[in-house]
Design a protein around this nucleic acid. Structure first.
Lengths: 271, 271
DNA sequence: GCTTTTGTTTTGTATGATAATTGACGACCG
DNA sequence: CGGTCGTCAATTATCATACAAAACAAAAGC
């Protein structure tokens, strides 16, 4: 794997504020605490707060103006296709059924067409990458986590095979939300036989270069998996996943300092 | 209109660097000048350079590491659906035919389905907004600029009518690129009769709540307009548009200071 | 009553100092 | 000869502080 660079302070602060905002703790139009207040609350310098704020500004979450402070922008201004924003939206610990529905709606636009393009344009390496992930999915000895990972990679490899940078970027953006969706679906029952069969159909069609069938199969797969996810989300709203639960607890308590310190594993200099 | 807040230094620097990067002046994997060098080149403080860098980092354009400096990430890591990134890509002054093709490819995924959803879900206000823009498009007395603006608004209103936040956000992201595309198509011949008719067909179908027809009409419109744009882009690559040409000239000369000063209309303190 | 001025609050920018990270190189040891 | 470890230096990361600029509000002056 890649060297996992230690998350720096600015990342942590941006994540903290970003999660608070997308969770709706500060309503659109409302002001975020002033930079001076955030310095105190989070025990970091104003430089760091400002750098974090710049990130949020770049994602369209907030807007700053002198004297008025920093205010949360209306949700249509948010860059919903930003990987961080989408990840923060799924980090609340509970499943947002609205998000799930809207996500399937756009996936239904994209993924069938991506399959068609992949069938037409993929090279040997691309096809092999897709096939390899499918093998893991059907392998009965795969653990649940491993299968979820492969399912995710399967979809991402299809995007990569389209040779259209927008599809690739879209995959990266929804990656986290996709993983959440898969976790919900495969909650404990594991993946259904129907879904495995449909994955196989998609895979075969792409390998065979059969664009229409690839498109149709993915369409069917999305329909099937949407129903599964919806049922799973309704019956029980995903309650374990350590990091997520911790985040929720912190968020509920309103206390950020201890959580922040846990996050970066050290304290800023005490004076 | 809205009060156009004066662009601040950090915005200008982020834009300058962002444009350089997406224009390919610094290849992926290559290092951006160090923050100290950028301070000198752009005549701004390191604070400002760093804040701009944070914005670029948030968009996945670059990654910073101590000792190694800031390096441009490979293009698949870029957030291609970020409004700024897409705007910078279209700010080069010349039309990138590859971008145009890929853009049409994703629009073909999205927009027909958006029309179907709009036909199913739009309320009176939404339908009226779409109709109003169509009226401007067909009005023979509309100026070219006005018609381009209305064409853009027409498509954005359709996204808004889907009541799916992802479509809305997508519209905002591709807005600038869409405008560029329209400018190319309507270069001097104006909008074609066929395109006007197809716009009408889309509009009617949505107002009538006829989802399949709305979808099909938009599909046809995209096909038609793609051909038009491709021809226009081939025959002549869009050569006027003051701001754009200025940006290209600056970019070619490699001199950034005068351009930057023009941008913010004043000099930083000379000491 | 209207305009102007002045003040206040908040973000914006600059500067300098110090800490942390990490790649490169070389010393040391097996 | 080869590998491991430590030292050094370059660069970003963080902090503290000061002042500038913008925007709004209230007071002052006509």
């Amino acid at each position: 794997m890649r060297t996992r660079r230690t998350e720096n302070l600015c990342d942590a602060v941006a994540g903290e504020l970003g999660r608070r905002i997308v969770a709706g703790e500060i309503a659109p139009g409302q002001p975020v605490p002033t930079q001076a207040e955030l310095c105190e609350q989070l025990r970091v310098s104003r430089t760091t707060v400002r750098e974090a704020m710049m990130r949020l500004q770049g994602k369209g979450l907030v807007e700053a103006r002198p004297r008025d402070g920093v205010r949360v922008l209306p949700t249509p201004r948010w860059n919903q296709f930003d990987a961080d924003v989408l990840a923060w939206r799924t980090a609340t610990g509970r499943v947002d059924p609205d998000l799930l529905d809207q996500l399937y709606e756009i996936r239904t636009c994209f993924e069938p067409r991506a399959c068609a393009l992949a069938a037409e344009r993929s090279d040997d390496a691309g096809r092999e990458a897709i096939r390899a992930q499918f093998v893991v999915i059907v392998d009965p000895s795969s653990s649940s986590a491993r299968r979820i990972q492969a399912d995710l990679a399967f979809h991402l490899e299809i995007f990569a095979a389209t040779r259209n940078i927008f599809f690739v970027s879209l995959g990266a953006a929804i990656k986290t939300a996709l993983a959440m969706s898969f976790r919900i679906s495969q909650n404990r029952a594991g993946i259904s036989g129907t879904e495995i069969r449909l994955h196989g159909s998609v895979c075969e069609a792409i390998l065979a270069g059969d664009a229409p069938r690839a498109e149709a199969s993915m369409h069917a797969l999305l329909h099937e998996s949407k129903e599964t996810a919806r049922h799973a989300a309704k019956s029980k709203g995903l309650e374990r996943d350590d990091r997520t639960v911790a985040a929720r607890a912190r968020s509920a308590s309103g206390d950020i300092r201890p959580a922040y310190e846990r996050l970066v594993l050290r304290r800023p200099t005490d004076r």
